[in-house]
Computed example of a mutant assay.
Amino acid sequence: MVTLKDIAAEAGVSVMTVSRVVNGQLSKVSDANIQKIQKIIEKRGYVPSQSARSLSSRSSKIIAIVAQGDGDILEYPYNASMIGQIGSLIQKHGYSPMLYFASEYQGITKKLHAWNVDGAIFLGTFDENLEKIQSDNKIPLIFTDCYSPIRQITNVGLDDFKGGVMAARYLLKKGHTNLAFVGSSTDISGVVRQRLKGFASVCTEAGYRLSAEQVLPDAPTLPALKTLCSGSHPVTAFFASADRLAITLMRQLHELGFRVPQDCSIIGFDDLPTSSYITPSLTTIRQDIHLKAETAVDLLFRHIANAKAPAENIILDVQLIERESVSSLPPDR
């Protein structure tokens, strides 16, 4: 591999002189040396290290996309869509996206510093370490779906509570009175917690209480589902906190011999493309993923342009998309 030292030796100049040419700092280098060094670079096929260039420059033109979890998070359509759209929008601004999977806090700051990034957008639940991340990195940071009480952060989120309210009201309007919720741990995710709170609040107002058995983890067991959907007063409708969970639930109910929506109705959250392709197509609470990505990127570059820009918390609206996975119950059911 060709190094700066190799080029400097062939050109008969210092390594610093070669570095200045490589990084475009030409004011302190003679025209003769610039031409000589550039010819050697072209002849020997030298490719500068991106990390070295970013460290030597005030602006690396790199934006980090920090996603919580390991590489398998791209298996989830929401994550893949958000990361893809954010990355594309970053490139349209003339910057390069750098994707980093953060399974624990300790590696985040080290990676951001090592790449000398100009800013970062965070996807996932970083609430517990958010204050530390903010204090350790003096660059624009944009968070998504954050429910931290810390005020001095910039966040783009959804009206998750409203989404839960809309789901419950729709199911009650369709005649369903014995409902259940499926979602990941509300102790970890503020997003899921707010969706459940909105859903449960409407149930309570209508005189129906969700029992502990009616709040299921994101991977409920088949026996638990069979018990809920059987007997004299079965659950007739589920609200899943994500479309992927709703689709998994459909498959599980099918395995148990229950029909959707004839025996059990399901409503999801996200409105992923898959939701309209499956049979029956999924009724869901829609979030505008493109608008969310665009808002996060716009905020980031606004803060890059103005380091004194105030923190903002932007909450995007949600919408009910009515399809085929929810049936109407007769009054006597």
Rank of each mutant, 00 (worst) to 15 (best):
A52Y: 12
A52R: 12
R53K: 15
R53W: 12
S54M: 14
L55M: 14
L55E: 06
L55P: 02
S56H: 00
S56T: 08
S56K: 04
R58A: 02
S59W: 03
S59Q: 05
S59P: 01
S60C: 01
S60N: 08
I62D: 01
I62M: 11
I62N: 11
I63M: 09
A64C: 07
A64N: 09
I65N: 01
V66L: 03
V66P: 04
A67P: 04
Q68D: 05
G69N: 05
G69E: 06
G71L: 08
G71W: 09
G71I: 09
G71V: 08
D72R: 12
I73D: 07
I73G: 04
L74N: 02
E75L: 07
E75Q: 13
E75H: 05
Y76H: 10
P77A: 04
N79S: 10
N79K: 03
N79R: 04
N79C: 10
S81R: 12
S81P: 03
M82G: 07
M82N: 06
I83N: 11
G84A: 07
G84I: 02
Q85Y: 11
G87T: 07
G87M: 08
S88L: 10
S88F: 06
S88T: 15
L89F: 04
I90W: 00
Q91A: 15
K92Q: 15
H93F: 08
H93R: 15
G94E: 07
G94D: 08
G94W: 08
Y95I: 03
P97Y: 05
P97E: 11
M98D: 04
M98W: 08
M98G: 03
L99P: 00
L99G: 03
Y100I: 01
Y100W: 08
A102Y: 04
A102H: 06
E104K: 15
Y105Q: 15
Y105H: 14
Q106L: 09
Q106R: 15
G107Q: 14
G107P: 10
G107R: 13
I108V: 15
T109A: 13
T109K: 09
K110Q: 13
K111M: 14
H113G: 04
H113W: 02
A114H: 01
A114F: 00
W115G: 02
N116M: 01
D118L: 02
A120D: 07
A120T: 13
A120F: 01
I121A: 01
I121E: 02
I121G: 04
I121S: 00
F122A: 13
F122E: 12
